[in-house]
């Protein structure tokens, strides 16, 4: 049984953006030596997300636009107050809710050393509150 975990740093450059990380996940799977198993991908931040959809710019834009319609910045959120553990105010409930609705992880099977996924399925790191340096994790489990 092989278990490998990689922490990947990613510098986001905008307030919101969808970043295709599929090649990086495929590279990690290829390097792992796992022939049959699973790969999990997880963001470590609660104002970012990980999701899978067709990899085209119009959908990237639609996801961000309609998440913002669902969770407008100006809504009357409780999360607008001083957080003593942060030493600052938290007022980004909209970004947390986008993370909740869009999800923070994905999992794919590995077969014959390759990810099993649909030809149009693309793995996105979703930035909802950037720009920031972010970290996501790729964990691969399986037989060599």
């Amino acid at each position: 049984m092989i278990i490998k975990l990689e922490r990947i740093k990613l510098q986001t450059k905008k307030s919101e953006e969808a970043i295709n990380i599929t090649p990086r996940v495929e590279e990690a799977v290829g390097d792992s030596g796992v022939k049959n198993g699973i790969v999990n991908v997880l963001t470590l931040h609660t104002s970012s997300g990980l999701l899978v959809t067709e990899g085209i710019p119009c959908l990237e834009e639609d996801i961000l636009t309609h998440f913002s319609r669902l969770f407008p910045e100006d809504e009357n959120y409780h999360h607008r107050r001083y957080l003593d553990y942060d030493g600052r105010l938290g007022f980004n409930a909209d970004t947390h809710l986008k993370s909740v609705i869009g999800g923070i992880q994905c999992m794919f099977p590995i077969e014959a050393g390759a990810i099993v996924k649909g030809s149009r399925q693309t793995i996105y790191f979703m930035e909802y509150d950037g720009p920031l340096e972010r970290t996501y994790v790729i964990q691969i489990l399986g037989e060599g």
């Binding site: 510098q11 450059k13 905008k14 553990y85 030493g87 600052r88 950037g130 720009p131 920031l132 340096e133």
Partner: peptide
């Protein structure tokens, strides 16, 4: 002393925060 709990960020983030 300053009491802030956010993650340390590369200098690049500072410039990007200014940019946006």
């Amino acid at each position: 002393v300053f009491q802030i709990g956010n993650n340390f960020q590369p200098l690049e983030t500072f410039f990007l925060q200014m940019d946006v």
